[in-house]
Simulated scan of single mutants.
Amino acid sequence: MDIKCWGSRGSISVSGDQYTKYGGDTTCIEISAKSGETIIVDAGTGIRCLGNSLIERNIDQYYLLFTHSHWDHILGIGFFRPLLFSNIKIMIQNRKFSGIDTKDVLNEVMRPPFFPISLKDMKADIKFEKALNNTFTIGSIKIETIPISHSGGGLGYKFIEDHKSFVFLTDNELGFDHPEGVGFDAYLNFSRNADLLFHDGEYTQNEYKRKESWGHSSIQDALDLALKANVRKLGLFHLNQDRTDDQMDQIINECQTDLRKKNSVLDCFAVSCNMAIHL
């Protein structure tokens, strides 16, 4: 299983010299199965560059899953160039977002006066699949889901292949139980012994005191989860839109110092745009 991040920024995309290391695009993850399938998680602004890459690599079939439908996770869909080509086949997860199904959510993003063309104008072969929910398989990868603790709800994912597991829990608040969430112990069990965990780490401890119930975790809570779950690698995700490269580097240094004091072998880092990991 190969994992590549095309966007890890939270809430809104950013640009500028102070954001070059970790990138400014919002959530989009590409997962490549050993059996050849391409899985995309979320259509944040990072999906634009992913689309260009898929065209360059002559990959013409993929699956698109969503954590949830807040702007930063869907706003890139209109700039996903593969949708313009008739040889492309894309299977999109069909589920409800606050009572609205996936197709209608995407139609809202791509309609006048917000966007000049609609989803029906796209030439690609687009299928909406209800089977891409709960527990399911895409090629050689088994996928499990869990409700996330976030305003409006959403899903977290576990991708399993060849006894290796990648858990993706962005926009998941560990310090506050949203009605749609399932509680810390459930996230601990879901993440247990994962080879790789990408988890929401938007806030420092001081920031979180002012942002409790906003739907995002403190970095310390993400570390606590990873340690208790015996995770091998923790990638902090949903990077705060105002967090510069230097500030993020300082946070990671502090995390690594804390882990050394605890004699932990956990590998902790911030997920950057274009980061690629093989499991």
Rank of each mutant, 00 (worst) to 15 (best):
P112V: 05
S35F: 11
Y208D: 02
K228M: 14
R111Q: 15
L83R: 00
A226V: 06
D242K: 13
R111C: 13
T204I: 05
M275F: 07
V231C: 10
Q220N: 05
M248Q: 11
D177V: 00
R111M: 11
K233S: 13
I117P: 00
K158G: 11
M91A: 05
E129R: 07
G154M: 08
N230D: 15
K127Y: 03
V265M: 01
R111V: 09
Q250W: 00
K228T: 13
I88G: 04
G235Y: 12
T244L: 10
N94M: 04
K130E: 10
N263G: 11
V182K: 12
N58D: 14
Q256F: 05
H150D: 03
K34H: 14
Y203L: 03
I141T: 10
N133Q: 08
Y157S: 01
F79Y: 13
N94Y: 03
N206Q: 14
K103S: 06
S32Q: 15
K233M: 14
R111K: 13
V109A: 04
H278C: 10
P82Y: 04
D17M: 09
I117A: 01
N52V: 06
D221W: 06
K127N: 04
G154R: 05
D25M: 11
L239N: 06
N206E: 15
G152Y: 09
I143C: 05
Y62G: 12
G7Y: 04
L259M: 01
K120T: 13
I59E: 14
R48Y: 10
E254S: 13
N107R: 12
Y62S: 15
L106G: 04
M248F: 03
T257P: 01
F269W: 09
T67R: 10
F79N: 12
K96I: 11
D25I: 04
I59N: 12
P112N: 04
I77Q: 06
I12D: 12
N133P: 01
F85P: 00
G175C: 01
N189D: 14
E161W: 01
S118H: 07
S11P: 00
E37V: 07
D249P: 05
V167W: 07
L65T: 12
Y19A: 05
F80A: 08
N263L: 11
A186R: 12
L196T: 10
Q256R: 15
N230Q: 15
F66D: 07
T135Y: 00
Q220V: 00
T257R: 12
I138P: 03
I77K: 07
V41F: 03
G201C: 12
V105P: 04
E212F: 08
N58R: 14
K209P: 02
F80V: 10
N193S: 15
V167Y: 06
I117M: 02
K228D: 14
L83F: 05
I92R: 09
I143S: 03
F66T: 08
